[in-house]
């Protein structure tokens, strides 16, 4: 049995008029194990979003391969998306749908068994405490509520792999904590989760394993204690800085 997520030498090159050739992601390889939260820790522009967009088949890799539950992101994109929930600060909701319609739509479009959809929708509404707003249009909801609906639509079809790309960006502290809590819960339900962030404390609290990404390269990938052992540093900040500096020297 393969690991649920396998990434091999993934590369993505953009051409930017101002900067020329941008190697957004350069030979990235990693694997995620079943039921873990895999953290992608990196500063802005490190290549996190690009990597995760390639995993979710929005972007096509320049080279390299990646598989999700055995489906190749290029040749079996639809199989990948069926098994995947993708959440990011840029994946918005339809303002003119109600909460219930939103969850229903995303469950069906991701081919959740039709006869179970209604049950699933009620379950999620209940789980995220959305009952009061279930029939209100999304455009009328507060940002905290929208946040919850967004998470609910991400897992509407109960996928086994979840990708959260900087989910707490732009949220207030309470909402951010809410999201973190939800991610922990989902892990305990056996989901495999890829979580990207530039916030050390979040990574430290949530992730079973952490990959430090910088300039499109993965500089290190281990459990927190493993990283501590290799670097002889305690704080994740220090570990991060150490790797980034070393990375810059080798480049």
């Amino acid at each position: 049995m393969h690991a649920p997520v396998v990434v091999r030498n993934l590369r993505k090159i953009f051409y930017d008029e101002g900067r020329g050739e941008v190697k957004a992601v350069d030979s990235v390889s990693f694997e995620c194990h079943e039921g873990e939260v895999f953290g992608l820790l990196g500063a802005n522009g490190a290549g996190k979003t690009t990597t995760l967009r390639m995993l979710s088949t929005i972007l096509t890799p320049t080279s390299g391969t990646a598989t999700i539950m055995g489906h190749d992101v290029v040749s079996s994109a639809q199989g990948v998306r069926k098994n995947l929930g993708f959440y990011s600060a840029t994946t918005a909701l339809y303002p003119r749908l109600t909460t219930r319609e939103t969850i229903d739509f995303f469950a069906r479009i991701n081919q959740y068994p039709a006869d179970l959809v209604e049950q699933r929708v009620e379950y999620l509404i209940d789980r995220f405490g959305l009952a009061k707003y279930a029939d209100a249009r999304i455009e009328k909801l507060s940002s905290g509520m929208k946040q919850k609906v967004s998470v609910a639509r991400t897992i509407a079809h109960n996928p086994s792999i979840l990708i959260f790309d900087e989910p707490t960006v732009g949220l207030d502290v309470l909402n951010a904590l809410d999201v973190q809590e939800t991610i922990s819960e989902l892990r305990s339900e056996g989901k495999t989760i890829i979580f990207s962030t530039h916030i050390m404390s979040e990574a430290q609290r949530l992730c079973d394993r952490i990959a430090i990404i910088h300039g499109g390269h993965i500089l290190a990938c281990d459990t927190l204690s493993g990283l501590r052992d290799t670097t002889q540093q305690h704080y994740l900040e220090d570990i991060f800085v150490l790797y980034v500096k070393a990375g810059q020297e080798t480049v």
């Binding site: 088949t57 929005i58 840029t90 994946t91 918005a92 909701l93 479009i109 991701n110």
Partner: peptide, 14 residues
């Protein structure tokens, strides 16, 4: 502009 296209593109719909 609203970002819903990206959401739609990550679903299982071809």
């Amino acid at each position: 502009e609203r970002g819903t296209l990206e959401t739609l593109l990550t679903t299982a719909a071809g």
